[in-house]
Design a protein around this nucleic acid. Structure first.
Lengths: 206, 206
DNA sequence: GTTTGTGAAACGATTCACAGCT
DNA sequence: AGCTGTGAATCGTTTCACAAAC
C-alpha cells in the first residue's frame, strides 16, 4: 500500500464527505463518475485513489455508499476521536474552538493555552483557557496526539518542541514559520494570507 | 510567460515573506540556497521557480534582497491593494476580519454581510455588518474583485453567483462545497477539517 | 450494457549537473 | 571561486483505454 500522495488523501476526505451526504439521503450506491463530478475530478482519478487501498466497488454497479464510507473512515483514521490541544487563544483560535466541523469529524479541542493573563481563566466554549506555563501539567493528565498552534511566529517553534515532548505527533500550524520537527511528527501548515496571494497572482496574470 | 504551477506560486509567496524579513534586517543579498533552506526546499527549486519570470540574480553573488522582493510583489500582484467583500459573519469570518495578516499583505476587508438580523448592524472591527439582501446596493458603490465566502454550504453557490454578477473575479471559499463558476473567475477552497484529516491519516498510517 | 480496476501512456514537477557569468 | 540559469534526466501524478466482473 505504501506511499500514497497527499493529494490522494485530500480527495479521499472529500469523497467521504459526499458519501456521508448520500448516506443521509438513503442513496445506496454511487459510481466513480458521480463522486468525480462532485469532487471536481475524473472517474479514473476516483478509482485510482481508491485502488491504493483495495477494491471496494462492484463492476457494473458502483460503490455501496455506507460500506465505502466506512472503508474511507478506517483509511483516514477517523473511526476514533482525537483529543486536540490548542495553543494560542487569539481570534483564529477562538473561531476554531467553536468550529463544529472539527467536532463532527472526531477532533475534540480539549485544552486551550495562552500566555496573556487577560485571557487565562476565561471560558471558551465551556473550556477554560489555561496558562501556557502550565502546559506540561495540564497535558500530562491525558494523552494528546494532536495540537493546533495559533501563536505568533516567534514562539511557535518553542511551543512545538514542548508539545512534542508531551507526546504530540501531529501539529496543525497557523503560525507563519516552517517548524523543524522530528521525523515521526507530522506538521500541516495553514497560511490564510498565502491563499489570498495565490488569488492575487491569478488576477494579475490573466 | 509559460504556465506556472500553483505550487510555484505558493513558494514565491513564501520566498517573499523571507525576503521581507531580510530587508528588515538590512541584509543586502541572499542566495538560492538560503531561501531554499528557510522555505524547506532546494536551491535548484528556488532558481527554477524564479526562472519562470526572469533572471533576477547575479551569478557568483546571489539575489539583491529588495529588488527580488519587489519583483515578487509585482509577479504576485501585490503592488496594489484589494478591496475584499466578506459574506458570512460567523466565528471564522470574525477571526478573518481582524486578522492582521490580510491587511499587511494588501487585502482590505471592506464589506461584511450576513442574513442573521442579530448580526446585521453590529460593528466588526470598525465595519458595520450589512444585510446580505443589500449586497447589490452596497457592493455596487465600489469595485470589489475579491470575496471571502464563510457561509453555510447550502447558500454558498447562490452567494458566489451574486458576487460574480457584481464583478468579483476571485473567491476564497470556506464553505464545504465545490463552487461552480465561470472560467474567468478563480476560486480557492479552504477546508480546515480536511487539514486535520490529512494529519489523522498520517497518524493512522505509520 | 454498465462500471470497476489497472497496466501503459501522457503529462507535470522536481532534481541533477554543468556551462556561463560575476 | 561562487552562484545563477537552464536543458536533460528523473520522479511522481493523472489520464487513457480496455479487459474483467456484474
Amino acid at each position: 500500500m505504501r506511499k500514497v500522495a497527499e493529494s490522494t488523501v485530500r480527495r479521499l476526505s472529500l469523497y467521504l464527505r459526499y458519501l456521508e451526504e448520500f448516506a443521509l439521503h438513503g442513496t445506496e450506491t454511487v459510481s466513480s463518475e458521480t463522486l468525480a463530478h462532485l469532487g471536481g475530478t475524473t472517474s479514473a482519478q476516483v478509482r485510482k485513489d481508491l485502488s491504493c487501498f483495495g477494491s471496494f466497488g462492484k463492476r457494473g454497479l458502483g460503490y455501496a455508499v455506507p460500506e465505502l464510507a466506512q472503508h474511507l473512515r478506517e483509511i483516514l483514521g477517523l473511526t476514533r476521536r482525537y483529543r486536540v490541544a490548542m495553543v494560542g487563544a487569539g481570534k483564529i483560535g477562538s473561531a476554531l474552538v467553536s468550529y463544529r466541523g472539527f467536532r463532527e469529524r472526531g477532533f475534540d479541542i480539549a485544552a486551550i493555552f495562552d500566555s496573556d493573563p487577560d485571557k487565562v481563566g476565561r471560558q471558551w466554549n465551556g473550556l477554560e483557557v489555561r496558562d501556557i506555563a502550565d502546559m506540561e501539567v495540564v497535558l500530562g493528565e491525558e494523552a494528546y496526539e494532536m495540537a493546533v498552534i495559533v501563536t505568533p511566529a516567534d514562539v511557535a517553534q518553542a511551543v512545538s518542541e514542548r508539545l512534542i515532548k508531551l507526546g504530540v505527533k501531529a501539529i496543525l500550524n497557523f503560525a507563519p514559520v516552517q517548524l523543524a520537527v522530528p521525523d515521526d511528527v507530522v506538521v500541516k501548515h495553514v497560511n490564510l494570507a498565502l491563499e489570498l496571494e495565490t488569488l492575487s497572482y491569478a488576477l494579475a496574470n490573466r
